[in-house]
Measured scan of single mutants.
Amino acid sequence: KAKLLVLLYAFVATDADTICIGYHANNSTDTVDTILEKNVAVTHSVNLLEDSHNGKLCKLKGIAPLQLGKCNITGWLLGNPECDSLLPARSWSYIVETPNSENGACYPGDLIDYEELREQLSSVSSLERFEIFPKESSWPNHTFNGVTVSCSHRGKSSFYRNLLWLTKKGDSYPKLTNSYVNNKGKEVLVLWGVHHPSSSDEQQSLYSNGNAYVSVASSNYNRRFTPEIAARPKVRDQHGRMNYYWTLLEPGDTIIFEATGNLIAPWYAFALSRGFESGIITSNASMHECNTKCQTPQGAINSNLPFQNIHPVTIGECPKYVRSTKLRMVTGLRNIPSIQYRGLFGAIAGFIEGGWTGMIDGWYGYHHQNEQGSGYAADQKSTQNAINGITNKVNSVIEKMNTQFTAVGKEFNNLEKRMENLNKKVDDGFLDIWTYNAELLVLLENERTLDFHDLNVKNLYEKVKSQLKNNAKEIGNGCFEFYHKCDNECMESVRNGTYDYPKYSEESKLNR
C-alpha cells in the first residue's frame, strides 16, 4: 500500500503543469573576455578590431598615390635624371617610397634638414613645378651647363633637372645676384646647392675665386655659405661634395641669391598645395585598381571598426592602431551559463540550468507544459528593451572611439638618435595607453552587458513569482510547478501579467 502511494505521488508530481523562465541559446562559437572571465561563450557579439588588409596600394578616395619607385624624396625633388618619370607629377593622395629606393642625390652630399622637408611634404597633396630662374636668361655671365658622370643618364654625363651647376664663363666668375618674388599665391619650395671641391685647383678651375661665398636671403631665411675645400674619400667617382638646401617662400615674399662661386642654382621650384589627408609611407606593396579610405604600408583597410592592429602608420580615415589581438564586445547572452554566478555589478545569474535553442524569437521568455502540450514563448517587451539598450551602447562606444585619422611616422637624422629613441618611447607609451583603454573598455562593457542580461532574466522570474504567489511552488531551476490546472489561456495570463490569483487560489489551497 505504501509503495502504491509513492508511485501515485510521483505520477501526480510529474503530471503537474509547469512554467519556466529562460533565455535564448544557439550554436554560436563566439567568445568574449570580461573583467572576471576569459573566453566566455556568448550567443552574439561584435568585433571592434580590424585585423585584415588587402595587401595592395590603392587610390585614396579615388585619387591615385605618387609612387616614387626607384627614387626617394631627395632624388625626386632635386631632379635626379633617373627620376625623370616623376617630373610630370602634379597631385596625389599620398606618397609612396620603397624601403630600398636607390636614386637620391646622384652627386654625393646631403639634403640639409631632410627630415623636416619630409614632414612638410606629408601635408602636401599637389604642386606646380615651374621655372623659377629661366636657364637661358638668368645667368648671362656664367656657364650653366655643368654636368657630371655621377648623374649620368643613358650613358652620358648629366645633372639634376631642377638645378643648374653654374661655373665660370671664360676665365671669370663675376659676382651674381638674382631674385624671385613669389607671385603664386601659395608657398613655394625653393631648392639650391653649394659645391665643396676637393682641392684649391678644382676650386680655381671651376670658379676662378679662391674665397667664394654663397648667400641666400628671404624674410624668414638668411644664410651665408662658404665652400669647404678638403680631400675626401671618393664616392660615386667624386672627391667633391654638394650640400643641398631648401626653404619655403611665403606668398609675396622675395628670395635673393648672391654668389661669387660654388652656387648650384635653382632652375625649377614648386608651388605647394596642402592636403590634410596626405602623407608619406614606405612600402613594398604594389599598386592595383582599387579604392580605399584608409591606406597602410601593408595594404588598404576598408573598415568602419574603431581599432586596427595592422600597422601604426596610416593615411586617410583609419581606425586607431592598438596592439590588441582581440577586441570583441558582447551583444547577446551567455551561451554556457554559470550556476549560481554573481556578476561584478550585482546581477544574479545561473538559476537557469541552460539556455534554450528552441526559443528563437527572443532573448528571454517562457517554456510551459500542461495537458494541452508544451512550447516556448519569447517575452518580446523585455527582449526589445534589451536590444535597444545594447545597440545604443555599442553604437555609442564605437562612435566615441571611432575617431579616424592619419598617423604618419616621424623623421630623425643620424645625429638625432637620442631624440628618436625618446620619441619611440613616448609613442610606445601612448600606444600602451590606447591599447589598455580599449581593452579595459571592452572588458568592463562585456561584464556589464552579461550582468544586464542576467538581471533581465531574474526580473522576469520575479515578475512571475509575484503573480503566482503560493498558487505554485519554485522547483529550483527557474521553473514553477502549479498547484492547479493551468491551461493555455492561464499560461498566457502569466506571461502577459494578467494572471488571476484569486481564481485559482482555492484549487491551489486544496492541492498544497
Rank of each mutant, 00 (worst) to 15 (best):
N145F: 13
S172I: 10
S200L: 15
T260K: 10
S123M: 13
R236F: 14
V194C: 06
K184L: 14
E131V: 13
V32W: 00
H153M: 02
G252L: 12
S85K: 07
L57S: 06
I255E: 00
R129G: 05
N222T: 01
N182S: 01
G55V: 04
N183C: 00
V6Y: 12
A271G: 07
T43G: 04
S137I: 13
T29L: 03
I229R: 06
N141P: 10
T34Q: 11
V96M: 07
G240Y: 07
T29E: 08
K186G: 06
F130Q: 05
D15V: 12
G170L: 14
E37T: 06
Y244H: 14
L249F: 00
W267L: 13
K59G: 02
E202H: 09
K175N: 04
S122V: 09
L4Y: 12
P65T: 02
S85I: 14
S219D: 07
S199A: 08
D253P: 00
N26C: 04
L66V: 13
P227I: 15
E50C: 08
D84C: 08
G279W: 07
V12A: 14
L166S: 00
K186S: 12
E136P: 06
R223G: 14
N211G: 11
D51Q: 03
C106N: 02
K184H: 08
L77S: 15
Q203Y: 02
A13S: 12
L66G: 01
L78E: 05
L272M: 12
L57C: 09
D30F: 06
V6C: 13
L127K: 07
Y245D: 00
V147N: 11
S205R: 01
S198W: 11
N26Q: 03
D237N: 10
A41T: 11
T167P: 00
K1R: 10
L191Y: 08
F225N: 03
L263W: 15
I264S: 01
L49S: 11
R274S: 10
R224S: 02
L176Y: 09
V149Q: 15
N54D: 12
D253M: 04
L176F: 12
A271N: 00
V40L: 07
E277Q: 07
S91C: 01
Q204E: 15
E119D: 09
K184Q: 15
K175I: 13
G75M: 10
I95S: 10
L206M: 14
D17Y: 10
S45M: 04
S123L: 08
E82D: 12
G109N: 05
T43V: 13
T167V: 06
V216C: 10
L272W: 02
L206R: 00
D84N: 04
A269M: 09
N162G: 02
E97Q: 14
L117N: 03
S215R: 10
N262C: 04
W192K: 11
N72A: 09
E50Q: 05
I255Q: 05
S198H: 10
I280Y: 06
S158H: 14
S198T: 04
A2K: 01
R154K: 06
A10F: 14
Y160R: 00
T74P: 11
Y245S: 00
G22K: 02
N39H: 09
L272S: 00
Y245I: 09
E82K: 04
H142F: 12
S101L: 00
N100I: 03
G279Y: 10
T177R: 06
D253F: 00
K70T: 15
K186Q: 14
L263R: 00
L4P: 04
G104T: 05
S150I: 04
R90S: 09
H239K: 00
A13T: 10
F159T: 07
N209L: 06
D30W: 08
R223Q: 11
H153S: 13
W76M: 07
P174G: 14
I35V: 02
F270D: 03
R241C: 03
Y173Q: 03
L8W: 14
Y114M: 09
R129T: 08
E228A: 12
V216E: 09
H195A: 05
N262I: 04
I19E: 11
L117H: 02
V181N: 12
W76H: 08
N100F: 15
I255W: 00
N145W: 06
G69R: 15
S208W: 00
S278L: 13
R274K: 14
L36A: 09
N222K: 03
P266F: 11
T148H: 02
L4V: 05
F130V: 12
I112Y: 06
S218I: 05
L272N: 00
G79D: 01
Y207M: 07
R161E: 09
S101V: 14
L8R: 08
S215A: 14
S101C: 10
P134H: 03
K70E: 04
A231F: 15
P266W: 05
D110P: 14
A41H: 06
R224D: 05
L57W: 13
A231I: 14
I229P: 05
F130G: 10
L163K: 03
I256G: 07
P108G: 01
A217K: 03
K59A: 12
E37L: 00
K168I: 09
W246M: 05
N222H: 13
L36V: 00
V96H: 09
Y268H: 15
L4Q: 05
S93P: 04
R224Y: 12
N243Q: 15
W192L: 01
E82Q: 10
L189R: 01
V124N: 04
G69H: 14
S215Q: 15
I256Q: 12
V214I: 13
A16C: 08
V124K: 00
E97K: 03
R129L: 05
V42F: 07
T29K: 07
P140K: 04
L248M: 15
K135H: 05
H196Q: 14
V42Q: 10
V42D: 10
V190W: 04
K70Q: 12
S172D: 14
I256N: 08
F159G: 02
D33I: 04
S125R: 13
C106T: 05
L111T: 13
L48Q: 12
L57K: 06
E102R: 07
N80A: 09
R129E: 08
W165L: 05
D30I: 04
V188G: 07
H142S: 14
L5T: 07
V188C: 06
T226K: 11
T260C: 00
N220F: 00
T254C: 11
D110W: 01
Y173R: 01
G240A: 04
K59E: 08
S158D: 13
M242E: 11
K184N: 10
W267Y: 11
S172L: 08
T74H: 06
S179D: 08
N141M: 03
S218H: 11
N211D: 09
E202N: 03
E97W: 04
Y114G: 09
L68V: 07
V235G: 00
A217P: 01
V214R: 02
Q203L: 02
L66K: 07
K234N: 09
L111W: 14
T143N: 01
C71I: 08
Y23V: 13
Q67C: 01
A13Q: 14
C71E: 04
N26F: 14
S273F: 10
I73S: 00
M242Q: 09
C83H: 01
K184M: 11
K234E: 05
V12Q: 13
A25Q: 07
Y160Q: 09
L121F: 08
A271D: 02
Y245K: 00
L66I: 13
L164D: 04
S200N: 05
K156G: 13
T34I: 07
R118P: 03
A217V: 11
F130M: 08
G62F: 06
T18M: 08
F144A: 13
E37V: 06
A13N: 14
G279T: 14
N243R: 12
P65M: 11
L87Q: 11
D15M: 14
W192V: 10
L5R: 00
I281T: 04
A259C: 10
N183F: 06
A212P: 08
F11K: 03
W76Y: 09
C58P: 02
L176M: 00
N243V: 04
D237A: 09
W92Y: 02
Y245C: 07
C106V: 01
V194H: 00
T254A: 12
V190S: 00
V6M: 14
E50T: 12
V124R: 00
L272P: 00
S152P: 14
N262T: 01
P99M: 04
I95R: 03
A230H: 13
Y268E: 01
H142I: 07
N54S: 14
N182A: 01
N100S: 11
F276S: 12
A25I: 01
V42T: 09
V40S: 01
S52W: 05
E228K: 02
L127E: 01
S137G: 15
K1G: 07
E128Y: 12
K38M: 10
Q67N: 05
I112W: 00
P81W: 02
C106H: 05
K156I: 13
